[in-house]
């Protein structure tokens, strides 16, 4: 039998909190591991009563959902934490936000509502906004039309184990073009499939189908995540929990 530390087991999770946070400004260059480290430290500084796993090296109970890639900004990253005493979600939001560096901003926090399902199941698509400085909207428009006309657009992605082929087309549910002279903006709704299709892959696909080569690296921002509905929009993944908060909450503990 595996050895266990002496003493009582750690206190159990009594409440789950779901948070939306951002990756703005220069912090878009943070990797998921960087963010996870920053969040764990901030939770300690904010004195959130985190639940920990048992064992010799206890870990705080945090689950991350679909992290944005390094270099991509986001307005809609999600995670869930377990706490050992009931907390006021607004107080946790404010305390955690204050403990995080500017750019990682906690913009929403709700208590998970029993019986409404897991957070991960409520997210299957992302809305990405890509700014392409130096590209004209018309130029982008025709490239996007050519891209959408295809069934499959294979692009190469560099991974740790070498180059890998990825189909960038099938995952794209919708694409619209906007922007102004000198900076086109592409808004794409991308299904979260395996292997994941990233903003970079979509840009590479535009190069493949229409030889669109932006003079400087595009800036990508994830604007939303959620379940893709028939109208092509994504639903707020915290919605089902938010419904619950109108009628519940016994004691509130300060953080």
């Amino acid at each position: 039998m595996a050895r266990q530390p002496d003493g009582p087991p750690p206190p159990p999770t009594v409440q789950k909190l779901r948070l939306r946070y951002t990756k703005r400004g220069p912090l878009r260059f943070a990797s998921h591991r960087d963010l996870a480290r920053a969040l764990e430290r901030a939770l300690r500084r904010a004195q959130v009563p985190m639940a920990f796993s048992a064992g010799f090296s206890p870990h705080p109970k945090i689950s991350y959902v679909g992290a944005a890639p390094t270099g991509a900004a986001s307005e809609a990253e999600y995670l869930e934490i377990g706490v050992t005493r009931p907390c006021d979600p607004d107080a946790v939001r404010a305390a955690l936000d204050a403990a995080l560096p500017p750019g990682i901003d906690v913009v929403d926090c709700v208590a998970a509502r029993e019986g409404t399902g897991g957070l991960a199941e409520r997210i299957d698509a992302s809305v990405w906004r890509l700014e392409l400085p130096g590209v004209e909207p018309a130029e982008l428009g025709s490239a996007v039309a050519a891209f959408l006309a295809r069934d499959v657009v294979t692009v190469e992605r560099r991974t740790k184990s070498g180059l890998k082929d990825v189909d960038a087309r099938a995952a794209v549910a919708a694409a619209t073009v906007g922007g102004e002279v000198g900076c086109a903006i592409l808004t794409v709704v991308v299904r979260q499939v395996t292997p994941a299709v990233r903003p970079d892959d979509v840009v590479a696909a535009l190069a493949a189908v229409a030889d669109l080569r932006p003079p400087s690296p595009p800036r990508a921002v994830r604007e939303a995540q959620g379940r893709l509905d028939d109208t092509g929009t994504v639903a707020d993944p915290l919605g089902p929990d938010r419904l619950a908060s109108t009628h519940c909450q016994g004691e509130h503990a300060t953080v």
Binding site: L27, F29, R41, T70, G71, P101, S216
Partner: peptide, 23 residues
Amino acid sequence: LYPRLEPLLAQVQKPIQYVGGEL
């Protein structure tokens, strides 16, 4: 220099080390 540095950061390994903003 950030506006001119930013496009370069998108092309390098571990760009987080160059952006500052540490706690």
